[in-house]
């Protein structure tokens, strides 16, 4: 099967001279259609920078990013073959929604990147209502402003905004780490269902091992800008190879002390 997204030798450096900082060094992995690929690491490990490079919010210093076989970054600019094909949901729904826009305008905004006829077709009222109903919002929410919503509802708005363009590939950058556990459960279940219904492919960035275990098929572990381990989630959880992965697993607080052997 052809990889949907293929990264090889991707690096990102900030600053220069003595201030040179390697945010991401030589990252390589492939994401296949229909899978959820987890990227785990602590703060400063470069996982969000990597996510930004995939979406084109940051450009790589070196390396290649192939999306469906064609390069995303040619050394000068990003080539988006089709706008709205790749979408992102950010960590903090407090700051990722424009406080001065109404929910309806926020959700429909990505469509402005599309050609006019496609925009009209995808932005139809029926489609919008179906989408917001699917993510658990109501039509009466549309004329309201973001501040009137709880954290979980705001993240639903952000998910609807990402899905309005019918993307193939969605990057989820810590989508639930700002939410309460019961709300997190709602959002994770929703994301899983949406993936199944729409045949989406996810890049799921998180620092929470349990969430990665629940959501992902394959994963990569990042430490200090490098990918130290890649594999299926099951393999990594059962037989972690790297010392760092083992530390991450053993630090996870668990309700079941008797299962401690699972993450020893």
């Amino acid at each position: 099967m052809e990889a949907l997204l293929q990264l090889s030798g991707v690096s990102k450096q900030y600053g220069k001279g003595s201030q040179l900082f390697h945010a991401v060094s030589d990252a390589a992995f492939s994401i296949y259609p229909g899978e959820t690929f987890g990227l785990i690491g602590e703060s400063g490990s470069g996982k969000s920078t990597l996510g930004k490079m995939v979406t084109g919010l940051e450009y790589p210093t070196s390396g290649s990013l192939l999306y469906q076989g064609s390069p995303l970054w040619n050394g000068k600019k990003f080539n988006r073959r089709k706008p709205g094909e790749m979408q992102i949901v950010f960590q903090d729904p407090q700051s990722s929604l424009d406080p001065r826009m109404k929910v309806q305008d926020i959700i429909l905004e990505p469509l402005w990147a599309l050609p006019a006829d496609e925009r009209r077709q995808k932005g139809s009222t029926e489609r919008l209502h179906a989408l917001i109903a699917r993510v658990g919002l109501k039509p009466e929410h549309l004329p309201r402003y973001p501040h009137e919503f709880s954290g979980g509802q705001r993240q639903r708005i952000a998910i609807a905004r990402a899905l309005i363009t019918d993307p193939t590939f969605v990057i989820l950058d810590e989508p639930t780490s700002a939410l309460d556990v019961s709300v997190q459960a709602h959002v994770l279940n929703l994301l899983k269902e949406l993936k199944r219904e729409r045949g989406l492919t996810y890049l799921f960035i998180s620092h929470n091992m349990a969430v990665i275990r629940y959501m992902c098929d394959r994963m990569a572990v990042m430490q200090k800008g490098r990918i130290v381990e890649t594999g299926t989630v099951e393999d990594i959880f059962k037989h972690p190879q790297e010392a760092y992965t083992k530390t991450l697993l053993s630090s996870l607080p668990s309700l079941h002390k008797e299962n401690a052997s699972l993450h020893a």
């Binding site: 459960a185 929470n208 959880f237 309700l255």
Partner: peptide, 24 residues
């Protein structure tokens, strides 16, 4: 019970999370 059920469990990752319906 719901709070415990809402936590992703490493031991049984394939079960859907038990989300609490409604809002606080």
């Amino acid at each position: 019970r719901a709070l415990i059920g809402a936590l992703p469990d490493l031991a049984s990752p394939d079960q859907p999370l038990h989300a609490i319906p409604g809002e606080s």
